[in-house]
Design a binder for these strands. Structure first.
Lengths: 189, 189, 189, 189
DNA sequence: CATGAATGAGCTTTCATTCAT
DNA sequence: GATGAATGAAAGCTCATTCAT
């Protein structure tokens, strides 16, 4: 049988994804996981600790997935980066939903470990976006644009697309490939 | 002096925008508004009722602002629509922050009046997007694209841009005009 | 009918005196006071706040009672001071029990308002003890002794006597007058 | 290496002395002792059991130390008895702190083994005090006083002195010899 | 001997809401 | 119109203790 620690995480992911962090009670998590309330606090420091573990795992994996991207045209690298994110989303719909819901969450203040976790990931992502954008402008695969603002838009648009799809569940979304093409449209020379 | 009802709404807007709905207590609203706790429930059915009024006013105004848009090329109409939203954002930063924070909020379920309010606005917005996109493809100002998916993207990207700016407060955002150009890039023939 | 705030304090005094602060639950206080649990936290910031009010009132009264002492021989002044304390004890057995029990209590750390309250009282008491001891040595009613150490002993011995009587409930205590004579024995010329 | 049982007791003594019994958790004891939580309950029936062992050892030793006192003037015997206690305090500051803190503790009710332990020690101590006081009054080294009340005061004053010094940590204490002289002052003929 | 995962009763506190005035 | 005292359900969390290994 799965260890109880994992059962807690699984239950929490589902509940956080459906209802958000603050509307999910620890009692609910315990019930869904099939463990006693106290067991949550044996395995995790507090409720926040469960969220942290979920997001930490997700962001670690996301960041590692960026490592493979390389030696392409700048445009193709950007495209790969978005595809990499998309793959994570497909594999971890629920966890990503948790992230999207609670990225701008309560107590999400510098010093908070989860905040730092997210900030570190964002920093890494923007480093790559900057590098690839510059590379693309050099190799001609991307047209001339202000690097910082463009990276900002790519991140924001991708966030919006994922949020509309996973959280707001707006009907009639484009398929993933097309969504990426839309986001990348401003880069085309 | 301002009627207490308005003072409550003003207080609630600020607090919801800063902290989100669920982290703001009714006691906090009462204190900030300078009224007694009971007064909130004299003027509003419940806490949700305050939020509803805030969002209702905002969405009414946003929808009315769409009325002026007309008789342009399809592309220019879409651009006007986004500019209209942008104007609202500039005039009502705080209220928009509330909307963005809590659009995917607790109890946001069909039947809930606030949900219906948002749904009605979205329906109206998409109607216009569909019409203008078709118009633009007919008049040649927009290249040939699947209407529904494109509208979906425009809405999602705009949401992402506003969220990054107002809620996540990501550094280095493009200015408003450029942000709109980025969103509209896929439409260019 | 007594206001609920007072009923809470009365209930708390009895329970704290019997069981000590940390072994008394807020549920118990509420039940004994005949109010709902939430009512405690409407009237007091937290459980500690109730204790603070109890001790604050007691120490204020004790300190005020010192004001009458004056214009006697040093020895008689010291005696009056101990009698003053004794009168408070007789009038407020339960509250004094709370103080004796929890004077060396949990979280009783500088900065804590209750701690400061007790510290201020002790400072006042020692000021008087010092003054009266010096006066007594000058007027010959007290024999020559190191002032600081003697005051320390008077306070400690009186504490011990009250503790044995009220908390430890040791059998066979001397009557109050005799207890005071015992404490004062070292002062006799 | 020390057996784990002893390491647990050592850890408990320190923690109980610093924080008191009820504010010290078994988890804390286990950590400080470097053993697993379960190990506590292998060696002791429950948390109370650890306290019992600590106090039992201390009181045994204190009582044994009384055995040497004899064949002196009554006054000298009383003085020896207090000195004996003082020696124990010097050798076992921490354990004595535990006793002073928790002598009037939770669940300290007849029937409780720790209570009986303390009661037995007190009985023994008072037997000696009575005997020595009578002896002193007979041999003229102590002036005529009611035996029971005087013994009561000696115990209470000594308790107060130790409490002020070890627990309340009042500044400016007399040295040990002087403290004893103060306590004994009422006995002087 | 010793472990440590697991428990569940109990704790203090928060808070939206009610209602007599 | 407005108040504020009062409520009670529910929250997150602690902790002594048990038990299979």
């Amino acid at each position: 049988m799965k260890p109880k620690r994992e059962k807690i995480i699984d239950a929490a992911i589902d509940l956080f994804a459906e209802q958000g962090f603050s509307l999910t009670s620890t009692a609910e998590i315990a019930t869904r996981a099939g463990v006693a309330q106290g067991t949550l606090f044996y395995h995790f420091k507090n409720k926040e600790g469960i969220l942290h573990e979920v997001l930490h795992r997700l962001l670690e994996k996301s960041a590692r997935a960026y490592d493979g991207i390389d030696s392409l045209s700048g445009y193709a690298a950007i495209e790969s980066l978005l595809r990499s994110d998309l793959t994570i989303v497909q594999q971890h719909r629920q966890e990503v939903s948790v992230l999207l819901r609670d990225i701008n969450r309560e107590a999400d203040t510098p010093g908070n470990p989860t905040y730092e976790c997210i900030a570190a990931f964002k920093t890494r992502k923007f480093e790559l976006l900057y590098r690839f954008l510059r590379q693309g402008m050099a190799d001609g695969s991307i047209r001339d644009l202000p690097v910082e603002e463009t990276a900002w838009f790519l991140d924001a648009a991708f966030y919006g697309v994922m949020h509309s799809k996973l959280i707001q569940k707006m009907p009639g979304p484009p398929d993933d490939t097309q969504a990426i093409q839309f986001c990348l449209a401003p880069l085309k020379p």
